[in-house]
Simulated scan of single mutants.
Amino acid sequence: MHPFQDMHKARSVRAYAVMAAFFVLIVGVFVVSMNMGFTRLSPLEVLSTLFGGGTDKQKLILFEFRLPRIVISVLVGCGLALSGAILQGLSRNPLADPGILGINAGAGLAVVLFISFYPVKTAAPAFMLPVLALVGAGLTAALIYVLSYKKGVGISPVRLILVGIAVAAGIHAAMIVLTIRLEPQNYQFVAIWLAGSIWGTNWKFVLALLPWIAVLIPYVIYKANVLNVLNLGDQTAAGLGVRLERERLTLLASAVALAASCVAVGGGIGFVGLIGPHLARQLIGPKHQFLLPASALAGGLLLIVADTIGRTMLQPSEIPTGIVVAVIGAPYFLYLLAKSKA
């Protein structure tokens, strides 16, 4: 066998091994997380309840409170990390992330506007919030795209980051102004949401988020080759027959939709889209056929671990998941920023 084929096979085996390890870790944390909480359930009690046994209280705790939240945390982590991987591939910038670029903030602004005029406790928001968040995130992404584009040059990765940070700052300021007029109940909800608390903790929110994840993740992985070619540069990609603007827009729309739907249910959680792809890239390399699914699994693992820590560290109180992620993500972001300048 040719040495190049040997190297390619070794990288593929390593990538599958890393993805399998991520999956096993997610399953392990999933099982542990079912046992942990204000009311502890032993592994035998969890197993018995899952197979139809257990008391009514144990069934209520496991099926109505813990399982939906754990599933949501995995789905949100996968979606945000995959969105970050797409944005990093499109911009060829390792610091691109839906939170840093202001896409999460745009989705959040739409949610805050909706809550300003609509009761939080109604049944409608569960399925309306992802759509509204998508509108807010889409408009924000379009604004950032227009402001970042320079005729004759295209989109500069550095300019994209700077514009995204500026737009995000402006949107956060607008959200603070809007929260002043909220009723106390809605204000408390928005404050918790902005801190990154996974607030959609029942099965209707799982059903609201699942179609977005189930459709967009396979589509994005199908487009892995396009991202590989785009990373070679615009001239090379155009020479290979890639329709640059069309592919960019469809992939950008997919990244925005993933981030918006996850933010609508999971709150203002940042850094997952930054850390997940970087961890995957360091372990398996830049080839998007492996990078995209590995990023999703890494994000799912990060968020389920963060949510479990947030739920159990200061019982009976909770630490918002976004704060736990920020404790990990902020130093890592500063490290990447210092490294990129070097």
Rank of each mutant, 00 (worst) to 15 (best):
residue 3 P to K: 10
residue 4 F to C: 00
residue 7 M to W: 15
residue 12 S to Q: 15
residue 14 R to S: 08
residue 17 A to R: 13
residue 17 A to Q: 11
residue 24 V to F: 15
residue 30 F to P: 05
residue 44 L to M: 14
residue 48 S to K: 12
residue 53 G to D: 06
residue 59 K to M: 10
residue 60 L to I: 13
residue 63 F to W: 13
residue 72 I to A: 06
residue 72 I to S: 06
residue 79 G to T: 02
residue 83 S to R: 04
residue 104 N to W: 03
residue 119 P to D: 00
residue 133 A to V: 12
residue 143 L to D: 01
residue 146 V to R: 15
residue 147 L to S: 09
residue 148 S to K: 03
residue 150 K to M: 09
residue 156 S to N: 14
residue 167 V to R: 03
residue 170 G to E: 11
residue 175 M to I: 14
residue 175 M to N: 12
residue 177 V to K: 03
residue 194 L to W: 02
residue 197 S to C: 06
residue 200 G to M: 10
residue 204 K to W: 04
residue 206 V to R: 05
residue 207 L to P: 00
residue 216 L to D: 04
residue 226 V to Q: 01
residue 227 L to D: 10
residue 230 L to N: 07
residue 233 G to V: 05
residue 236 T to N: 11
residue 242 V to H: 12
residue 243 R to Y: 10
residue 247 E to I: 06
residue 263 V to L: 11
residue 264 A to V: 10
residue 265 V to R: 00
residue 265 V to Y: 00
residue 269 I to V: 15
residue 273 G to M: 05
residue 278 H to T: 06
residue 279 L to K: 00
residue 296 A to T: 05
residue 298 A to T: 14
residue 300 G to W: 03
residue 305 V to C: 15
residue 308 T to Y: 07
residue 308 T to N: 12
residue 311 R to E: 11
residue 312 T to K: 05
residue 323 I to Q: 08
residue 337 L to E: 01
residue 340 S to Y: 01
